[in-house]
Amino acid sequence: MPSVKLTGSAVTLAAIILAGCQYLPHEVEVPVQEQPLQTIAKPAELPFSDFPGDGETRWSTESGVQMSFSGGNSPVLAYRMPAQPTRFNLILTSLGTENTIFAPSVRLLDANHQVMAEFSLDDFEYLPARLIYPDRLQLKINDVGRFYGHHYLMVFSPPEQQAGTTAFRDPAVSYALATNREPPPVEDIQARHVTQGRLRFDLASLDPVAPASAATSPAHQAQPESVAEPVQEANSPQPVSEQLASEQPADQETPAIVEKLQVLDTIREHVAAGRIEEALDLSEKAQAQGIPEARAVFVEALRSRP
């Protein structure tokens, strides 16, 4: 079984400034599986690897792992993410070469392989080359939330994204902008999308120390220096929406993105199934818990009923 070596690195000062967050460096070996995948409809069949956490990996079609789309195949990296008892940001960066880049899409799955969130290439921000960094496509998922059980992350590139290009800013233009000169009229470099490249993952905890409520949560606290090491799974993780409906957190926190999505999806599911009272009750509780859009989602779901 081939493997790629992932070298952990110190969190950049910029990341600390950005999020005021904690960085936990590490170094892990990530095995790359070789079993092909025939369909994206069965993520359970994906050969999940341990999530690399903070670090860089090289993407290669040599791994043989493919996702099937109607228009063709895509290589896929599938990671099993350990429980994260602290709220965190997840940053995925695709590092380009002079004129090529891997154009990723990302899916976040819960422990039951249900899609919690999906991010396409449109959600990635282009970052021009700067100092020692090449041109990049970067996705920042801010405040992903807490994972009381393991989750899954899939990175792939659908055929329509493989066929595209990304405009790279010419170094001459970057030079001018960085030094407050007038940029020359140089056309952007059209970097081809390719099916191999370099990916970098960065995790940043939003909690300098684990919150008090985490001590009573069913998950273990993250251990310093080993945030990406598998943490023992929680016992049958309770759906976040149910937690929200049944628990009153010790401190009023803004729900994380994933938590919000789960709540909003649950509202929709209740409405779709005709459980209007439950949907209304959950939407009211969600609003009280800091999800103001819950009401609108409830109303929208009602209007959208066939």
């Binding site: 999906e118 991010f119 801010n142 909003l264 929709r268 779709a272 929208e300």
Partner: peptide, 17 residues
């Protein structure tokens, strides 16, 4: 609903971005 959820996820992430 998944698509809507995705759109909201995007919107939310952009908000925080």
């Amino acid at each position: 609903t998944r698509r809507l959820a995705t759109q909201m996820a995007t919107a939310l992430s952009l908000t925080t971005l």
